[in-house]
């Protein structure tokens, strides 16, 4: 990554302004032009460096509920189970990890009751246990990588 792009990435990690011309503002701060900022973000999305460009939500502030789930999936069934789990729109970032508990995903839903419903559905569909590990406290919020 070019130094100029790194600088843009760092700046964007802090969030863009909610103003009429946010890309123009960021561009002005960095001495770039507006079109270049938007084009670079578009390219990062295409390259898969970014999964999304937009807001980060705090679901719990809205009375919603979030939990982390773990499953021990037999290796032979891994892809099939992953497809079943990922088909639920409430499931976010699902990771395969190296452990007997090899599937780890987050469920975010409107309420704790909805989470229970999703977990019950996944257990029924996969015939595997879902270990529900709700958060009791978050100590540290965000990952700002040391870019470069």
């Amino acid at each position: 990554m070019q130094p100029r792009e790194r600088e843009l990435l760092r700046r964007l990690l802090r969030g863009i302004p909610v103003d009429s011309r946010p890309f123009a503002e960021v561009a002005r701060e960095l001495g770039m032009d507006e079109a270049e900022v938007a084009a670079t973000i578009r390219r990062w999305l295409e390259e898969g460096l970014l999964t999304r460009f937009g807001p980060m939500f705090d679901i719990e502030r809205l009375g919603g509920a979030v939990t982390l789930c773990a499953m021990a999936v037999p290796q032979a069934r891994f892809e099939e189970v992953a497809a079943m789990v990922n088909a639920h729109p409430e499931v976010a970032h699902n990771y395969e990890r190296e452990h007997r508990f090899n599937m780890w995903f987050v469920i975010a839903a409107e309420s704790r009751a909805e989470i229970d419903r999703v977990i019950a559905e996944i257990e029924r569909e996969t015939r595997l246990q879902v270990v529900d590990l709700p958060k009791e406290r978050e100590y540290f919020l965000e990952f700002i990588p040391e870019v470069g």
Partner: peptide, 24 residues
């Protein structure tokens, strides 16, 4: 959107990075 940011419903507008692609 400003009201949602103030209320903390939106934490910020920006990048959702895929760390693996950054070499992590």
């Amino acid at each position: 959107l400003r009201r949602l940011l103030e209320a903390g419903v939106i934490r910020r507008f920006g990048l959702i990075l895929r760390h693996r692609r950054l070499g992590y």
